[in-house]
Design a binder for these strands. Sequence first.
DNA 1: TCCTAACTTGGACTTTGTCCAAGTCAACAC
DNA 2: GTGTTGACTTGGACAAAGTCCAAGTTAGGA
Lengths: 137, 137
Amino acid sequence: MSDLLERLRARGWRLTSQRRVVAEVLDGEHVHLTADEVHARATARLPEISRATVYNTLGELVGLGEVLEVATDGRAKRYDPNAHRAHQHLVCSGCGAIRDVHPQGDPLAALPAAERFGFTITAAEVTYRGLCPNCRP
Amino acid sequence: MSDLLERLRARGWRLTSQRRVVAEVLDGEHVHLTADEVHARATARLPEISRATVYNTLGELVGLGEVLEVATDGRAKRYDPNAHRAHQHLVCSGCGAIRDVHPQGDPLAALPAAERFGFTITAAEVTYRGLCPNCRP
DNA sequence: TCCTAACTTGGACTTTGTCCAAGTCAACAC
DNA sequence: GTGTTGACTTGGACAAAGTCCAAGTTAGGA
């Protein structure tokens, strides 16, 4: 995590307490928080941090490629700090739990040229849906 | 499309002019309209149709499996009437254009049991991202 | 220690979607 | 046809998620 702060400083980021707290909240594996959840956890450490700053900081981290934006349900976006290892997501249709998963092969390879309609394709995002052990009937 | 109206009637749907108009607006291939776009087009044919009815009707069509909900960008959901042929989506990062595409193989097969964390997986949604011919620099 | 551009703040605003009480009407029975 | 009724529609209020801005604050270089 301090790696992250170092990288950001190296890119000219001004290291404020607000940004530090947001970066700390987003530390770990299988972290997929909404902006509001990030704000709630950040507030626990820095009570006066504003919603606008959380949104700004998340947007900057996404722009820098340090955090991924994940839209699994059409509701609030989620922020995933695991940006440096390619992965996909497994989502429980019952409780909304999210896990990072690593499918075999390159999902891009499954799309033949004839199905690309002249697009220059750069990424493939896969969302697996199902029921987690706790939600299974 | 009248097939659709027949199927719906057979399931006990009351066939109102509002529902008919929404179903007509959602006719075609590569249709991925937001609820607001559906409302705008429906209003052109039936000026007094309300937003609430458009949302209700779209929700019912999704519940009946006649229309798919697609969340490609964390903004407004899109509604895809092509629900009876399995397909994935190709999205232009520049202009937001969406195409239905048909990758080879079953994306579910790429996820090994060890990566399923005890989930019962029922679906895999793939979003390919890139630039369409018009948006390429 | 000072300066200043960059950052943060709170609140207003927008977009997208949901909910509800009251009014309307499609479809069935006759 | 006509009447009846429960399902459907409506407009407006409300909620959730996110954006924008002018004014105040501050990190970090000089």
